[in-house]
């Protein structure tokens, strides 16, 4: 695996793509590969972009790519889409809404399925970020559909967490998870060419002012992709907000998480055994037991 890691660090795109596959799959190979890759990390700025479906995240990211490219930055994107709860499969189509960057050698986009992590990011996302970082990409944009846990996750993995909202959610702005408001570094009101943008921005400001103990509120930026407005201020805000300590914080949390998930894995084996016994010995309904398992 060290050969692969070296090839990744040398910037070979095909090897990077293959490394991402290995890391996504997990297991011993992934752990070894990541360990080697970690030596090369620490330079990329990781920007998490989350928000409800229909907020225009992909198009906004497309615009961000353009603006960052104009600054000479090399940009990688991880576009995370939820997997089907029924099959575990996924249709990954976000990248096609990010505009015409396919042939730009300074842009690398990878579509990622959440692989069954309900409401959360793919377990592999931190490792994927490390790989992109090690491969020398200046900025890693991480796109996820906002849904509870992933919002908070994204804040842990990213140096800057951007929450994208959109006019027309109306009172539903309230529904934006309080958790994300707590951790977002920048709030964006996208599609601000639509009526109601000012109102949405105002509502967000009000909610932020209720955020306790913070003397400084995160900025609320209005963007519109068709008008190319607000994109530049968002980019400069990203640079300002990227915190020096962000990376370290992420790694620390990562270690805790790894330990937790290893523990959970053992636990669930026990659970499965117990479920089987409760069907065979206690005569419980299989469908009930199966559902209980699925719910875990």
């Amino acid at each position: 695996m060290s050969t692969l890691a070296a090839a990744v660090a040398a910037g070979h795109e095909g090897n990077l793509a293959r490394a991402l596959t290995v890391l996504e799959k997990g297991g011993v190979d992934a752990i070894a590969l990541r360990r080697t890759l970690l030596e090369h990390t620490g330079r990329a700025m990781v920007v998490g972009v989350t928000g409800p479906p229909g907020a225009g995240k992909s198009s906004l990211i497309g615009a961000l790519i353009g603006a960052l490219r104009n600054e000479g930055k090399r940009v990688a994107v991880l576009a995370v889409d939820p997997s089907s709860p029924l099959s575990g499969g996924a249709v990954l189509g976000d990248r096609t809404r990010m505009g015409e960057h396919t042939l730009d050698p300074g842009v690398f986009i990878r579509s990622v399925s959440s692989r069954g992590q309900s409401g959360g990011l793919s377990r592999a996302v931190p490792a994927l970020i490390d790989a992109l970082d090690a491969a020398g990409w200046d900025v890693v944009l991480l796109e996820t559909v906002g849904s509870g846990q992933s919002d908070v996750d994204i804040a842990e993995y990213a140096d800057v967490a951007v929450l994208v909202s959109v006019p027309g959610l109306g009172d539903d702005v309230q529904a934006i998870k309080a958790g994300m408001l707590e951790v977002a570094d920048i709030l964006v009101v996208n599609k601000s060419d639509l009526p109601g943008a000012a109102r949405t921005a105002r509502q967000l400001e009000q909610m932020l002012s209720l955020r306790s103990s913070d003397s400084v509120h995160p900025p609320v930026i209005r963007t519109s992709v068709p008008d190319a407005s607000g994109i530049d201020s968002l980019v400069s805000e990203l640079g300002r907000t990227a915190r020096a300590g962000g990376r370290l914080r992420r790694l620390r949390k990562e270690i805790v998480r790894e330990a937790e998930s290893a523990f959970a894995l053992r636990l669930s084996k026990d659970l499965v055994d117990r479920a089987c016994r409760s069907v065979l010995d206690e005569g419980r309904e299989i469908s009930v037991v199966a559902l209980e398992l699925a719910a875990r």
Partner: peptide, 18 residues
Amino acid sequence: RDAGHEVVYTPPWQTISG
């Protein structure tokens, strides 16, 4: 997708190099 695979999906009119 329903068979459990991960499908990267594009709209029509892709170029070959793309």
